[in-house]
């Protein structure tokens, strides 16, 4: 839903293009950091480094990124074994095949199987496949998730409601350098013949980080 960014001094209300309510920041006391953002934005425009249109376009671009894009890729991989193989061999290329412009993203898809469950973390900061899934959730960037997932992933997954049996191996991926990760979850039973749209509906953001598995129909 398009939103008019020209409001001055009013709560923007409504929903942002990403489908979430805007945080009500417009009516609170201006903070030091907000002043810094405004100042930097204006100085960069005055220096010719960027323009207000470019900035607004980039905001809109990120607003258009959401887990629905990742779910689209997962659903196709479930439906098409050749595409699945291409996704595992070249994640970014497979995303582009689906018309998703991922820029410089170097995507590695890691596949869940009956005996392996994958989960992704960035212990050093908050690396995340933003151009595919949108902005990461706060908990992904938290001290607790970053610290504990590499050491006690099963305990962390239980906190997210996912209790894995001992016969399933857990594989943690620490996003330490240039690659970004998406978990390709296992296709749920009982979905034979489903359309890609229906399959995509089963795939949440948390499934593609690895702290959840898709809903079973």
């Amino acid at each position: 839903m398009p939103h008019d960014h020209h409001d001055h001094g009013h709560d923007p209300g409504g929903l942002s293009p990403s489908g979430h309510p805007y945080r009500k920041d417009q009516d609170h006391a201006l903070t030091h950091w907000q002043r810094m953002e405004i100042a930097i934005r204006e100085l960069l425009v005055e220096r010719g480094l960027t323009t207000p249109v470019e900035i607004a376009a980039q905001v809109a671009r990120m607003d258009a990124r959401s887990p629905a894009l990742g779910a689209q890729v997962v659903a196709r991989a479930w439906s098409d074994p050749d595409y699945r193989a291409r996704l595992l061999a070249d994640g970014s290329g497979a995303c582009r095949e689906e018309g998703i412009e991922v820029d410089a993203l170097k995507l590695v898809a890691v596949e869940n199987t009956p005996d392996t469950h994958n989960v992704v973390v960035c212990t050093l900061c908050s690396c995340y496949p933003r151009m595919l899934l949108g902005l990461p959730p706060d908990w992904y960037k938290s001290r607790a998730y970053r610290s504990r997932t590499v050491r006690e992933p099963r305990a962390v997954l239980r906190e997210f409601g996912l209790d894995l049996p001992d016969r399933v191996a857990v594989r943690v991926h620490d996003s330490t350098a240039d690659m970004r990760y998406i978990v390709l979850p296992a296709r749920p039973e009982g979905t034979e013949g489903w359309s890609r749209a229906a399959l995509a509906d089963l795939v949440s953001r948390d499934c593609m980080i690895g702290v959840a598995v898709p809903r079973t129909p």
């Binding site: 050491r151 992933p153 099963r154 620490d174 240039d178 690659m179």
Partner: peptide
Amino acid sequence: ELWGARAERPEDTLDAEIF
């Protein structure tokens, strides 16, 4: 290898990118 006796399940693994 990483956590010794404190590993939840010794055969679980961790992958990381290293230069």
